[in-house]
Design a protein around this nucleic acid. Structure first.
Lengths: 232, 232
DNA sequence: GTTTTAAATCTTGTATGCAACATTCCTTCT
DNA sequence: AGAAGGAATGTTGCATACAAGATTTAAAAC
């Protein structure tokens, strides 16, 4: 196969965004990373105009932000923003499960397939695929429940969470995450939405707990300490 | 004051979006309405480029959609899309209240102020202001709870709901809505988040119940019936 | 009078050009 | 050598130009 990215950004106007979201979910794009318009326009074989339009959409989705005349950057949320994002996500996912009555066998099967894929990626050591699938499980859940609006909202929130995890050096174990996904499905299978919602709540609290909120601040703290500690 | 809208779309790049969202919430822009790029560029005194960028962001937020080489249109959700949107909104708002522990007295005061403003708008017969405030209550609630991410998500979902209500000729009574808002605050004041969540659930079900899902389809049905009924 | 066809008009889709600002690198001065 | 200043470079911000297609209007044929 040849230059993978240059399929046709003209046919599918959302290709650029999709690729960036996918790369972020896979951990191949780090928070704070610069995304130059010219750079992207060359990669996708289109003019800056189309790149710019894609960036505008990604901006509205909270994935990138722009610094005046300096460029586009993948979001680098502060501790406070990170908390708000994860809180919003928890509210949405818990609410989604609480307001659900019953999951059909077909849905359960699709979700089990997804978890199997997660396990496979974990076993094979494919870090990008693992990261992507663990995040995408939540989008998949919303899709499976049949609500594209929820799925779309969750894709954005999940992508932001993955970026937060990268920024704050999440120590969350992939095995544990995958196991929790399985438990949520178990509860759904039994028709116990309330329990599924509770498990989701716990799961997302684990995700947050695994973050090292000091890691980003620590640079500043280190500097401060260094400057106060001894005279130069 | 002179031409109100032409303040400065250069200083605030989000002015165009903000105005369109506000107009939609106020019921001054109907679903299906066409928003021409040239038209808007003249209104805001900028080139089509900036208008286009704003439309891209609004597209990502699910407020407008584009029809190839025909123009931009305010969304006109199908019955199914309408259900999904309201379901998503209910999940988010119920989850938001369920995962909340306690509302401070300051929050309660701010919310009561908002409801008072609603009552005033209802009494004065200002339909646009009334529509805006009844919708904005939900954004206000999220803001008050201190989560800008939730507030932003809710602004978009609420705007879409207002458009849906316009499209499906909602018969929901403003008084009733306002009263339900008050009850939700009462529950919050007593520290009973679960009850607040339940009331919100009921409130949003009322909103949906008031929609006449047949009104949009009826045009087609009428046509069908007319064609079958008698020979031309 | 109605239908078909063609021209004219209008609107978006995409690229490009240029100005404004930020950054970097090099020169110059101390 | 180090600091300061300035030129050179690179990047975005915004406008404009032009092509491609959709819609409407007008005309012509039946």
């Amino acid at each position: 196969m040849r230059d993978e990215a240059e399929k046709d950004a003209h046919k599918n106007p959302h290709l650029i965004e999709d690729r960036i979201i996918h790369a972020a979910l896979s951990g191949r794009i780090a928070p704070g990373e610069r995304l130059g318009e010219k750079e992207l326009s060359e990669i996708f074989g289109v003019s800056r105009t189309l790149v710019r339009e894609a960036m505008m959409r990604l901006q509205a989705r909270g994935i990138v932000e722009v610094s005046s005349r300096r460029g586009w950057f993948v979001i680098e949320p502060s501790v406070e923003e990170a908390r708000h994002t994860i809180d919003a996500r928890r509210a949405l996912e818990v609410g989604m499960l609480v307001t659900l009555d019953r999951a059909s066998p077909g849905m359960i099967r699709a979700l089990r397939d997804h978890v199997r894929a997660e396990q496979k990626a974990i076993a094979s050591g494919d870090r990008a695929e693992r990261s992507y699938l663990l995040g995408h499980f939540h989008v998949c859940l919303a899709e499976t429940l049949g609500n594209p609006v929820l799925a779309s909202l969750l894709q954005d929130l999940t992508t932001r969470t993955v970026l937060i995890a990268a920024l704050y050096q999440s120590s969350h174990d992939a095995h544990e995450s995958c196991g929790e996904h399985g438990e949520i499905i178990d509860a759904l299978e039994k028709g116990n939405s309330t329990e599924a919602a509770r498990l989701m709540d716990v799961h997302l609290r684990h995700v947050e707990k695994a973050l090292n909120y000091r890691s980003a601040a620590s640079r500043l703290d280190h500097l401060k300490a260094a400057l106060q500690g001894s005279g130069t």
